[in-house]
C-alpha cells in the first residue's frame, strides 16, 4: 500500500513540474506540491528532492532523450548513492517521459524564438468615412511574444509602393528556400 502511494505521489510531482515548468501553470508551485503530496517530508527535504528531480527532467529535456537513452540515463542515476532516482522510481520517471516528452520538446523549441510570431492578420482598408484613401492600404498585424513572455502588437500599413517591396522580398526568400531544398 505504501509503495503504491509513493508511486502516485511521484507521478503527481512530475506532473506538477511539467505543468509549472513547461505549461506555465503558476498554481503548481512548490508550496502547492508540497502541501498536496509530500507533507510527510520535512520542507527542506522536499525542496531538495524537487530540485534534484527538476534537474533530472531538465537533463533529459535538454538533450531530447529518446526512451532508450532515458532508460540508460535513469538506470545510471539509480546506481548513484544519495541520488533522487532509486531503482523503483526509474519506471515511474520513464512512463512520465514517454507521455510528456513531445510536449516538453515543443515547449523548449518554442523558447528558442526570441520574438516569435504568435498570430497575424491581414486587413484591406479600402474605404473610410473619416478620411480619404487614395488607394487601398493593406494593414498587416503581427502579434509577437518574446521568450520572457512580453507581448507586442505591430500594425503595419502597407501601401502600393511598400507592397511592391514586400512581394519582391517574399520572392527572394522563397527563391532562397528553394535553393536550400526546403
Amino acid at each position: 500500500m505504501d509503495d503504491i502511494g509513493e508511486e502516485k505521489k511521484l507521478q503527481g510531482l512530475l506532473n506538477g513540474i511539467f505543468k509549472r515548468d513547461y505549461q506555465g501553470q503558476e498554481e503548481y508551485n512548490d508550496d502547492f506540491l508540497y502541501e498536496q503530496l509530500y507533507q510527510n517530508l520535512d520542507r527542506k527535504e522536499f525542496d531538495d528532492f524537487i530540485r534534484k528531480l527538476r534537474g533530472i527532467v531538465n537533463s533529459m529535456a535538454n538533450t531530447n532523450m529518446d526512451q532508450d537513452q532515458a532508460e540508460t540515463f535513469l538506470k545510471a542515476q539509480a546506481k548513484k548513492r544519495g541520488g533522487v532516482i532509486t531503482s523503483d522510481r526509474v519506471e515511474v520517471v520513464l512512463k512520465f517521459w514517454r507521455n510528456h516528452k513531445e510536449k516538453i520538446h515543443s515547449q523548449i523549441i518554442s523558447r528558442t524564438n526570441w520574438n516569435g510570431l504568435t498570430k497575424w492578420k491581414l486587413d484591406i482598408n479600402s474605404y473610410s468615412s473619416t478620411k480619404i484613401i487614395n488607394q487601398p492600404v493593406a494593414v498587416l498585424q503581427f502579434d509577437t511574444k518574446s521568450d520572457n513572455n512580453q507581448k507586442e502588437t505591430l500594425r503595419v500599413e502597407i501601401d502600393g509602393k511598400a507592397m511592391h517591396n514586400v512581394l519582391e522580398q517574399l520572392d527572394n526568400i522563397e527563391d532562397q528556400l528553394q535553393k536550400l531544398g526546403n
Binding site: 502588437t153 503595419v156 501601401d159 511598400a162
Partner: peptide, 9 residues
C-alpha cells in the same frame, strides 16, 4: 498585448 506599435511600412 503589452505594447502596440502602428505605422506605415
Amino acid at each position: 498585448s503589452d505594447n502596440i506599435i502602428t505605422g506605415k511600412l
